[in-house]
């Protein structure tokens, strides 16, 4: 080996390059992680002690130690339910149509550009749209349904783009073999493309929902209340037909709004409450993302190709 000095120099140089890039990467990563850790650590230190059964089962109150987030977490859950129910079928349908059915022409190009642009529109603009159109224009009021609708609009581009990407990633071999056995387009899309794209679509949907769960601006804009001391009517009832849609038209609040409201109070006790709500919100997002990872793992196992 001693008789290859120039090759040795090349190897040494490559090693130095690799090493310096790794060090740079680790430093950048360290800073990013340290910031995040500080933020979460601070939140946990402030709020963790406040989380109790009472905190989850009480309505807001004038006294910080008696206040709870019952109406907020119920509101968040119901709004997210509406959002998911609207955004996932619409977004997946639109994505499938654009990718599998739409002819490639100026119109589909225009739609494509618009969808990507919509993903970048500030969320308050969606709030204004909903306030003008749903709340006043259609007279729907400041209800859970409108809250769910505006958040669904907000995350629709995310779901559409994720669906298109997942569909595009379906191997052409699978598509060709499905057509090859004589399937028509409907059969190929529903029986082969969609199941194969499902992990990617679900990931996109949950990323969208995790974004929606923390959104405050559009919900405030449509006029969700900040102090709610009652629950919406239950979606389930004891007598037939057992389900009840009255909750959709109920006023509501959500966790980020409750948090926002508490942080703007002077008393330290409310700040503690806000931090505790933040911890719970973070926990909900983490659970959703964990669920996405689990689903992806489960579904991929059945699809290994």
């Amino acid at each position: 080996m001693a008789d290859h000095p120039s090759e040795k120099r090349i190897v040494a140089k490559a090693k130095v390059q690799d090493l310096s890039f790794s060090i740079l990467g680790i430093i950048v990563l360290f800073f990013a992680m340290a910031m995040l850790a500080t933020l979460i650590g601070d939140l946990l230190a402030d709020g963790l002690g406040r989380i109790s059964k009472q905190f989850l089962t009480d309505f807001p109150s004038r006294r910080p130690s008696e206040a709870g987030i019952l109406s907020a977490w119920v509101g968040t859950t119901l709004v997210m339910f509406v959002t998911a129910l609207l955004a996932i079928p619409l977004g997946v349908g639109a994505g499938l149509y654009l990718e599998e059915y739409a002819p490639r022409n100026w119109l589909s190009d225009l739609i494509e550009i618009n969808v990507s642009n919509l993903a970048g529109v500030p969320s308050i603009i969606y709030g204004l749209l909903a306030l003008g159109f749903f709340v006043y224009g259609l007279g729907m009021g400041q209800t859970i349904l409108v809250g769910g609708m505006v958040l669904a609009l907000l995350i629709l581009p995310i779901v559409i783009v994720a669906t298109r990407e997942a569909v595009r990633a379906v191997p052409s071999g699978l598509r060709e073999s499905a057509y090859g056995i004589g399937c028509n387009r409907w059969q190929v899309v529903w029986q082969y493309v969609l199941p194969s794209a499902r992990p990617g679509i679900l990931t996109g949907a949950i990323v969208g929902l995790s974004r929606a769960i923390g959104e405050t601006a559009p919900i405030i804009t449509i006029g969700a209340l900040t102090f709610i001391a009652f629950l919406p009517p239950s979606p389930i009832q004891a007598s037939p037909p057992f389900v009840n849609a009255d909750w959709l038209t109920s006023p509501f609040t959500v966790m980020p709004i409750q948090m926002f409201n508490w942080t703007s109070r002077p008393q330290a006790g409310f700040h503690e409450n806000a931090a505790a709500t933040g911890v719970l919100l973070l926990g909900m997002t983490l659970i959703m993302n964990g669920f996405a990872i689990y689903l992806r793992y489960r579904l991929r196992r059945g699809l290994r190709s």
Partner: peptide, 16 residues
């Protein structure tokens, strides 16, 4: 046509 003719591709691609 595809109902009349069967095809096998280069890379084995069974359905999931």
């Amino acid at each position: 046509v595809r109902l009349l003719v069967g095809m096998v591709f280069q890379k084995p691609n069974p359905f999931p």
